[in-house]
């Protein structure tokens, strides 16, 4: 059988036709343990139909559909990228002031031969790990740890690679009391201060201040169906439309897709996802991100630190000169 893709566990609403086709395929496979040629033929045909459907659906995802894909529970998270792309990963904990924050993981690692400092927001993959990582919503300590690690990279002249996948910074009493705003501001400031290459990739959800805190980089990559926005569509809808059920409309209006952000000059490169999204073939998505990061890193190799920093700032200053009219 040609197809080795694992059966999907979670289907999105608009993937319903796919779910039905794949259920049928599963059923036929159970029947065909004897290798009935007719059934094999039928499965192949159905598989072709699945691919056609997927290609069709995923070629024209609406912004709201992309929001759902970006938040898909089976989508690879930071730890999946770390496992597959990094060797000698050595997580380093704590902000040295108050606590360790597991919503942001960071440390030293080797990426395709290069020592790097890696930092990523982690949402978690099951109930226990989601709680441990606070669903990827960092407290000030997370951003302060990120800042500390960026300073470590600066000290040893190591490139920094950040992975962004967060609904946003955590809105809580303790987070506010300990200076959430200040922690994010300082993290942005440090991104814009360092003299080493800083690469960022938005792998899922790029949620507002909690995302830009780690993403003021020389090169900002974004997966094809990831999203990056100043506010969640739900939050925007409840403020501007005064109705949370207008989230789909808000998602369109916010222009939060990789395609729109590329046109606006906010991101530098879109990393294509496997057919049907990163959640269908996580390994392929992870490898594609690895290749894109390696190319981006190579492109910055040998550039003097002061120039790297000046270009990074210049890039952000120039954002806004291209509209979407």
């Amino acid at each position: 059988m040609a197809d080795v893709r694992a059966p999907m566990r979670n289907f999105l609403d608009f993937e319903k036709p796919i779910a039905e086709l794949e259920a049928k395929i599963e059923e036929l496979r159970h029947l065909s343990s004897s290798g009935d040629l007719n059934i094999i033929d039928e499965v192949t045909k159905l598989q072709g139909k699945v691919d056609r459907e997927l290609r069709q659906i995923y070629a024209k995802l609406s912004a709201w559909q992309k929001v759902q894909v970006a938040r898909h529970p089976d989508r690879p998270h930071f730890t999946d990228y770390a496992k597959a792309l990094l060797e000698d990963m050595t997580p380093l904990a704590g902000d040295r002031g108050f606590a360790e924050d597991a919503a942001i993981i960071g440390g030293l690692a080797r990426f395709r031969g290069n020592s790097v400092v890696v930092i990523g927001t982690e949402k978690g993959a099951d109930t226990a790990s989601r709680v441990r990582h606070n669903f990827g919503m960092a407290h000030p300590e997370g951003y302060r740890k990120a800042r500390r690690l960026m300073e470590l990279a600066e000290r040893f002249r190591l490139p920094i690679v950040t992975f962004v996948d967060t609904p946003g910074a955590y809105p809580g009493i303790g987070a506010e009391e300990r200076g959430q705003a200040e922690a994010i501001a300082r993290s942005i400031e440090t991104c814009l201060s360092v003299h080493v290459p800083l690469l960022s990739v938005v792998i899922g959800e790029g949620g507002s201040g909690g995302a830009i805190a780690l993403a003021a980089g020389n090169t900002v990559l974004m997966l094809e169906h990831a999203i990056y926005s100043v506010i969640s569509p739900e939050g925007c809808a409840s403020i501007l439309w005064r109705r949370a059920d207008q989230a789909q409309v808000a998602a369109e209006a916010l222009r939060l897709t990789a395609q729109d952000l590329k046109k606006l000059g906010v991101i530098d490169r879109i990393v294509p996802e496997p057919l049907g999204g990163a959640h269908r073939e996580p390994e392929k998505a992870v490898a594609a991100v690895g290749d894109a990061l390696e190319a981006a890193l190579n492109a910055l190799r040998g550039i003097e630190g002061g120039v790297l920093r000046a270009r990074r700032r210049e890039k952000f200053l120039e954002i806004g000169q291209k509209g979407l009219a």
Binding site: S208, I212, S229, V230, A253, R255, L256, V266, I319
Partner: peptide, 8 residues
Amino acid sequence: GILSLMQL
């Protein structure tokens, strides 16, 4: 949208 976030 995102352009306002870029003002940070």
